[in-house]
Write a protein that binds this DNA or RNA. Sequence first.
DNA 1: AGTTAAAGCGAATCACTTTGCCTTAGCATG
DNA 2: CATGCTAAGGCAAAGTGATTCGCTTTAACT
Lengths: 180, 180
Amino acid sequence: MCAAVHRAVTELIAEGGADQVSIPAVAARAGVNPTSVYRRWGDLNGLLADVTATRLAPEDPPPDTGDLRTDLLQWAERSRASVTTPETLALVRHAVGQLACADSGSTPRMAARERQLATILARAAERGEPAPTLRQGVDHLLAPLYFRVILNLGPIEPADVHRLVDDLLHHHTGTCAPTT
Amino acid sequence: MCAAVHRAVTELIAEGGADQVSIPAVAARAGVNPTSVYRRWGDLNGLLADVTATRLAPEDPPPDTGDLRTDLLQWAERSRASVTTPETLALVRHAVGQLACADSGSTPRMAARERQLATILARAAERGEPAPTLRQGVDHLLAPLYFRVILNLGPIEPADVHRLVDDLLHHHTGTCAPTT
DNA sequence: AGTTAAAGCGAATCACTTTGCCTTAGCATG
DNA sequence: CATGCTAAGGCAAAGTGATTCGCTTTAACT
């Protein structure tokens, strides 16, 4: 049942955005009784949080190729591909909408991404490669990666990812990039 | 009545996030009848959209000091101060949560910000100042500015705004910045 | 067979929303 | 001044969908 419900949530949210999702609708599509869903997940936010965690949290460990640029490229492209997906996009947007002002925590997903990035940068620093700070990584790689897509500001292609990584590294290493 | 309702929405959303806001709750706090609210604004999204537009859309025109860096600093600081406000933050988050995948448009607010940035950059280019592209501006200034705050990734201070503008300009002009 | 956890089912409940009707205020016209 | 029209808002009753409750059923394991 658990699997069917998750699938139903994913389908519904990918089709019509977050407000097409209700417990009765999900239950109907999953072929289970709404009561069962209420019992297991409590309410809609609980359910969506669980789906989000299940679909997005068990991200594989960040790449570790021994080269900062390669690590970043692989990691960023993976992130891009993930958030470009309709389901992921809708889930992330919903998570944003749920954040209350007073919350000190971020979305679990974004916190996980930030941690992955931190790992990559820390490893590079250990190897002695010149590496940007986590803050720079977040501001100039993680942020633009997600910002455009989340806000429908335009598409992001693999080429854009490449450019962002270049920007970040050139800027940090002091190698002046061509300003295309 | 219109004013009282707007005030009620703003207060409620600043207090407890977007899902503390319901038409009956707003009406009660504003001292009006829920029916009146339904009649005027249709539904909750209509009401919130109107509040968002009223509070955020009539942004003043972007600064025009004749110097790109100064323009960017003033504009970015203004944006930062605005989105740091609990009401604005909650409204923006809610708007994000409302975006459906298929939507081609962004939030009105963000589109407006992007346009302001475009104006600033275009004016600099006309004056012959070396200016980054709009894409660079969005990726490296607008995105980090909002990303951190929207996702609760950490506070943003005026000093951070300064650093972001520096990053953007140094990177573009080829002057290698100190990587603090 | 006995026990227990998980899920189904229908009725009841609750909150949000809609509807029809009534009151009030503003304003023009006879 | 009185009349009548219209727009805005209040009020209560009815409608709708989500949520909860009590209870039964099923299936796995002992």
